[in-house]
Simulated scan of single mutants.
Amino acid sequence: MRSRLFATALAALTAAAGLLVPPAALAQEPTVRLLGEHTIAHRAVFEDTIVGGLSSIDRDPHTGDYALLSDDWSDHSPARYYRAEIDLDAEGLHDVELTDVHLLRRPDGRTYPTIDQWRIEQHQHPEAERNVLGTVDPEELRIDPWTGDVAWTSEGQRNQPGGAASDDPITVLMDPAIRVSDAQGAYQQEVPTATNEKMTFGESGPRVDDTLEGLTYAAGGTLLVSALESPLEQDGPVPTTEHGAHTRITVHARHGAAVAQFAYPVDPVFAESPDPDGRGSNGVSSLVAYDTFDPSRYLVVERGYVVGVGSSVRVFEVSTAEATDVLSRHSLVGGGFEPASKRLLVDLADIGAKLDNIEGITWGPPLPTGERTLLLVSDDNFSAAQTTRITALAVG
């Protein structure tokens, strides 16, 4: 126990001081090839739950199987994550088999209610305006490399009567959250998020539906790192075809408080919509540590969508080694800081992968060829127009 506490403290001090390990030489760019893709049937039923909304994938270092989180608000089935066996090798991706499902639970053991059910509870208990454990919008899940527990994020929500949703009489101010559950889904603890990641009714804080899309353990499990999909309200506008934006990557001391935060440069939207009323977006949908022990290198998924054009999915190799710690900086408008650096690892369109709503990424097992495998999952939003698909890549 003492050695673990020492490792955690050392990692926290290292991150907070900005003394991050510099990335390895990047003289030779990796090559990436498509291994294969596997589609899970729309609204497949597994152990009395509807399979869909898969927004995260992670490989268990203890067992070699995978965890897949559903971003269901408990509307289709209670908030949950699945376990799966994935059969892949240097020749391709052969099969995906769901093996178990675990319901995520509140401290009292109950499952999470739908947001409408929770609003009834809210109305009955108006003092509970700021939700902590009432309901959830799950997004990303990672398996703890030390214990096998699961850390996962919830995006939160904001609604103020008289505002954009004035027909809704219930006030909702639900903070984005990071939680830890055991492998069976039982609640363990809350991880304190950064102050600037809490919802407000003012002109600061996270944008609705643009919050904690990314989560990963780093530095051998001594750090827990999260990423916001889009800029905080005070950090400037979201990306357009004319400009990109800066969102934030936050470093936590394992399951403790935030110790550092870095600006991440999101690319501009990749195309104009042919529809005059159409819109486009681009943001961070997942991140994973690039290396088991290096606390400064990550892979970040930028997922874009343009009405009338389609999707864009690009994976970037990212380094925070030279980035400025902006944890105490209220706004990123005006510059005056060094953002994380990045370079393109792969544009999925360039290797023939089917493009959809990719929301999760994880490293898979190494191949005899010396390549590393990389797996991604797409979220079908429980819509027949979209697909639940596992995509496997080989990185050499």
Rank of each mutant, 00 (worst) to 15 (best):
T320E: 06
V266D: 03
V238H: 05
V150T: 07
A177E: 14
A67P: 01
R83N: 00
E140N: 07
V377D: 02
D168R: 15
T387W: 09
P368S: 13
V51Y: 11
D95P: 01
F201M: 13
P239T: 00
A177W: 03
S285R: 05
Q189N: 01
E29I: 07
A9Q: 07
N282E: 09
D182H: 10
P239D: 04
G352C: 08
L104G: 02
Y82D: 02
G64C: 00
A289S: 15
A17I: 02
G214T: 04
I86Q: 03
A321E: 04
W146M: 01
P366A: 14
G18C: 07
D267N: 06
V315C: 06
D58V: 00
A9E: 10
G36I: 00
S56W: 10
V191P: 08
V306K: 00
R279P: 03
A41M: 05
V313F: 09
D100N: 11
T240M: 08
F46E: 07
H252Q: 12
P237W: 10
G256T: 08
L345N: 00
H102G: 04
A165C: 08
P113A: 03
L35W: 03
E197W: 13
T241Q: 12
Q184F: 10
L93W: 02
N282I: 03
E272W: 03
T211P: 00
S341F: 06
S166L: 08
T200A: 12
Y82M: 02
Y82L: 10
R389G: 05
S56E: 03
Q188E: 11
V225E: 08
A394H: 09
S70L: 02
D89H: 11
A67N: 03
H246D: 13
A253K: 07
D100S: 09
W152M: 06
D210N: 12
W363F: 15
P237G: 06
E85F: 01
V259N: 07
I249P: 07
G163L: 05
G336W: 04
G278L: 07
L228K: 05
T49C: 13
R389Q: 13
V259I: 09
H252A: 12
T99L: 06
E97K: 14
D356L: 04
H102A: 13
P231M: 09
M199F: 14
S319D: 09
A128G: 04
L393V: 04
L376M: 06
F262P: 00
G336I: 03
V395P: 01
G283N: 08
I50T: 15
T49A: 12
Q234E: 14
E140P: 03
R303N: 13
P107N: 05
A67S: 13
A183Y: 05
R254Q: 13
H94Q: 14
Y290K: 00
E371I: 00
R343N: 01
I143W: 07
S285H: 07
D87R: 13
E121H: 15
A392F: 11
I390L: 15
L54F: 05
R130I: 15
L287R: 04
H102P: 06
I390V: 15
I50Y: 11
V346D: 00
D144V: 01
S166D: 15
Y187D: 05
L54K: 02
Q124I: 07
H123Y: 12
L348I: 06
Q28N: 08
I361G: 07
A11R: 10
E140T: 02
S230D: 13
